[in-house]
Every structure is written in structure tokens, then in C-alpha cells.
Design a protein around this nucleic acid. Structure first.
Lengths: 135, 135
DNA sequence: GTATTTGCAAATACTTTGCAAAACC
DNA sequence: GGTTTTGCAAAGTATTTGCAAATAC
């Protein structure tokens, strides 16, 4: 919900959202730029960044901060957890996790007003397990 | 545990660790640089970064990735959760949280080998609540 | 004495921004 | 037609790195 400004449906914004919705790989801004450039060769990286910002502010996509010092993006706007491979770096979604009731339990031990949480798991993905890769 | 290399106790490394242990504010690398510079005026920011890396690799401190695109550091090597104020940005520790048994519950729904997790809470800190500050 | 670490400066990685032209509604 | 968005390039912010000199052990 932008305040005052009316959000337009530009070709660039549309394609960025479409491409991001196609994948489950949680790409970085530059990876999205590479994907989108195949359909819109003249698009600039700055436009990609600006649109990712707009789309995440309006709740159509999500930022994921599971890499140090750069963001990844998730075309799935629904809240869910992530798991990252400590060997190959791949990031998967985790659905159907039990509800840990963390906000509620946590509010009993602190005088903060809790508005949300972020939970990420780390581990070894099936491909790395199978290949016997070590850190 | 560095492999092969023997880790030395330099003046810089010692002071960085001491200063970080003194505070509970989870400073950024540059904030640590400012703190340490008062005692070692000739230290360079690069040295601070290199030592923070060494210290976190050896488990004496922790990196916390709760800001987008920069790291904070925690002089407390013990595992614990964090809570960040969505208004003023302050980051506090959360101790004595109940054990959610998340690794165990999660391993039943995925074929990854889970090695750890990270959990951060977001909310409004007592100071911002009291001051009635809004986003 | 030798391997590690430092200070410095330059380089790198990622992201943001100013501005005139183009696109949207 | 007026406002938003784009492409481009430059700037900004955080972090890393090459190297000769200094330090730790």
C-alpha cells in the first residue's frame, strides 16, 4: 500500500513478478536481472532493484535475508520458513511446519510487544547428502 | 580451530574481544572499530574485520545477521535468540526461551539433514512503546 | 627466525540514487 | 496531460584483499 502514489503495471514490473513466480529457487537481484533480461533485453539492474522493493513493500513477494550481505527474493507471498544448505547454499521452502506458538510463549518472558518472527533452518540438502559432500 | 595456522594473541585481537564482551548492544563492524580506536588509535578497519572473522570462526563471538546488508556482532558465544525493534532498530538478547524442539519436529517433514536453526523476533521495544513511537 | 598479523589503500560486491526521457492511465 | 517509471551512470555502503612492514612466539 503506497501512500498517495498510484502503483502502475509496467512491462518491467509484470515480467519481474512473472519470472519470480516461476521459480522456487529464491534468486538474488542479479539472478532475477539475468532471468528477466532474456525477455526484456534493455532492462536495467536498477529497475530490477526498484521493482523488487515495490513488490515486496506491497506484499506480492518476500525478501529473504539468509545470505550474509545480500538479499534473495521469494515469489511466494505466503509466510513460510526456509532451510539453507550449508554446503551448496541452496535455499528451499518448508511448508506444513507445526505451529510453535512462539510469539505467545516469548511474550511471557519479555516486555517487548512482539509483532513477528523469522525462523530459518540450516542443514545438508538431499543432493549433497547423496553425493557425500563435506564442508 | 584454524587448520594448520596457529592463532596468535595480538593486541588488536585482544582489545576487540574485550570491547565486544563489554557491551550487549550487538555493534556493527564500524561501531566496534570506533570503540577499539579509543584504545588503539592506529588500528585499521580492515584489521577489525579480519579479527571479527577469526573470532567468530573460532567460536569466541557470533555474527548476527538481523540487518539487511550488514552484520552485527555478539560478544556472547553462547547460543541464544535475538529480538529487534522495528522502530529504533535496537537488538536485544532473549534468554530462557522454552525449547521448541524445532530440529526434531522439522526433521519429520523433510529429507534434509538439519544441523541448526536461527530464530529472531521482531517487535517494539519498551522504550519505543513508552514513548508511543509509531513506524 | 619464521609464520602470522597489521596498516594502508585499492578493489570488490551489492544496492541506491539523480536525472532526463519514456511509459502508463 | 500529469504522474510514475525507466535506463543509464555515478555514487553510496559494507566488506575484502594485496603487499610490505611489524609483531608474536
Amino acid at each position: 500500500m503506497p501512500k498517495g502514489k498510484k502503483q502502475r503495471i509496467t512491462r518491467q514490473r509484470k515480467v519481474i513478478l512473472e519470472e519470480l513466480r516461476k521459480v522456487t529457487s529464491h534468486p538474488t537481484a542479479d539472478e532475477i536481472y539475468q532471468m528477466v533480461k532474456k525477455r526484456l533485453p534493455k532492462i536495467s539492474l536498477g529497475t530490477v532493484y526498484r521493482n523488487l522493493e515495490v513488490l515486496s513493500k506491497s506484499g506480492e513477494i518476500q525478501k529473504i535475508d539468509v545470505d550474509e550481505n545480500r538479499l534473495r527474493y521469494d515469489g511466494n507471498p505466503k509466510e513460510h520458513y526456509h532451510i539453507k544448505c550449508i554446503i551448496c547454499g541452496r535455499v528451499d521452502d518448508l511448508h506444513d511446519l507445526p505451529d510453535f506458538k512462539m510469539e505467545k510463549k516469548t511474550s511471557t518472558i519479555t516486555d517487548w510487544e512482539i509483532t513477528g518472527h523469522r525462523l530459518d533452518f540450516f542443514g545438508i540438502c538431499p543432493a549433497c547428502l547423496k553425493a557425500g559432500r563435506k564442508r
